[in-house]
């Protein structure tokens, strides 16, 4: 398991243990990965996050177009050997998305129940974000310039 912020580890561990999920991914609404379990390649994590966020964004827009007063909520794909649970949830950091891959050892109902508990645990565990923006240290523009020169090539200033 990898988490961006340590306080996420306990809720995610609980979800994985109780639901017997095989893979899990937590991301922001725009697809930035916050935590993951079970993925072994970084490219897979980024692709799955982008695709999952895209699916939920699409269903939310579909809901708006057809006049649904609320989003459609969770999306479930139930395959022969494994299923995917994809659902948004609100946190003090804004709307996040959870993606859970589960096998025959689990079920949609089980994942749903423990996903709801996970979302509640995240809301409790998340530090209050009273400062909406964290200041960057001085000199960040020079560091950005150095970083892009390192990535793209070019003589240092």
């Amino acid at each position: 398991m990898r988490v961006l912020e340590p306080w996420l580890a306990e809720p995610l561990t609980g979800l994985l243990r109780e639901s017997s999920a095989r893979l899990a991914l937590v991301m922001t609404a725009s697809g930035q990965v916050v935590a993951q379990h079970g993925f072994t390649r970084s490219l897979d994590v980024m692709a799955v996050a982008a695709l999952g966020a895209g699916i939920l964004a699409t269903t939310a827009e579909l809901a708006r177009v057809v006049g649904s007063p609320t989003d459609f909520g969770a999306v479930v794909h139930h395959g022969e050997s494994q299923g995917i649970w994809l659902a948004p949830f609100d946190t003090p950091r804004g709307r996040w998305i959870g993606l859970v891959v589960f096998g025959r050892e689990s079920s949609v109902g089980l994942v749903r129940m423990f996903f709801d508990r996970f979302a509640a645990d995240v809301r409790v565990a998340a530090p209050s974000d009273t400062q909406p923006r964290e200041l960057l240290a001085e000199g960040f523009e020079r560091e950005l310039d150095d970083s892009l020169r390192a990535l793209f090539g070019g003589a240092p200033r």
Partner: peptide, 25 residues
């Protein structure tokens, strides 16, 4: 692998900017 472009998006790891690890999609 880090620089693969499988879809119409690109991910860049900018390293440390202003004391924080920064990346951009």
């Amino acid at each position: 692998e880090q620089h693969a472009m499988p879809l119409d998006w690109v991910s860049l790891d900018l390293g440390t900017i202003g004391g924080r690890a920064a990346s951009v999609l």
